[in-house]
């Protein structure tokens, strides 16, 4: 039996983390959380989470940055918004999950070869470069980067899609790609969070 220290000391926190998250647009109301658990109760994916959404709210507010950013929970959020509309304190939990995903990607603290953050980044890169997502290409890239073996299991689906005219490896492009690049560069130069 392996035992692990579970007590938390104040030094285990990253002070100011909660306050920082709560200063982001959409995340302010986390302050009002009463830990009722409605979010977890309605979340269709809470059954697989290491921390329930309610626990993520508590940990975030109490500055447990490392625990939160390393949790599976934030990646399991499918953006269905059920928690956001049911929360009795009007906390936009989905938006908080987005914010935490961003921070985890930014700090590179997510499980290696974990496909969800990889998909998010591949998706974003493709949109930034081409303006549109070509689903076939995106999924192929994803499998190559995370789990090439699993891709074999998807071959049948791919074939089916091909047969029904729904799969293509051609990259879609918009005309004004230069505009897109400039928009992205402008945002990079500003900081909403400042």
């Amino acid at each position: 039996m392996e035992i692990k220290r579970t007590i938390k000391y104040q030094a285990d926190r990253v002070r100011g983390f909660g306050r920082e998250v709560m200063s982001v647009p959409g995340c302010e109301k986390l302050k009002d959380c009463i830990q009722c658990g409605t979010c977890s109760g309605v979340c269709p994916l809470s059954i697989y989470m290491d921390f329930t959404p309610r626990q993520v709210m508590a940990l975030t507010r109490e500055d447990f940055k490392n625990e939160v950013l390393a949790s599976h929970t934030i990646w399991l959020c499918a953006s269905c918004y059920a928690c956001t509309v049911e929360c009795p304190r009007e906390i936009r939990i989905t938006d908080i999950m987005y914010e935490l995903k961003q921070r985890a990607i930014h700090e590179g603290v997510y499980p290696k070869r974990f496909p969800i953050p990889v998909l998010a980044q591949e998706f974003t890169t493709m949109v930034r470069q081409h303006g549109r997502v070509s689903e076939g290409l995106l999924v192929t890239k994803l499998y190559l980067k995370t789990n090439p073996i699993a891709a074999l299991g998807m071959a049948k689906l791919g074939m089916g899609l091909m047969k029904t005219g729904r799969f293509s490896l051609k990259q879609e492009n918009i005309k004004q790609r230069a505009d897109l690049a400039r928009i992205v560069a402008t945002v990079d130069n500003e900081s909403v969070k400042a």
Binding site: Q102, L180, E190
Partner: peptide, 25 residues
């Protein structure tokens, strides 16, 4: 004419500023 991707659920997870700007385009 020349619409671009809305950003879906993925872009918000990477950068909400860019996600909004691209959607607003």
């Amino acid at each position: 004419d020349d619409w671009s991707c809305c950003g879906a659920t993925a872009y918000m997870a990477v950068d909400e500023g860019k996600a909004c700007a691209l959607a607003a385009r």
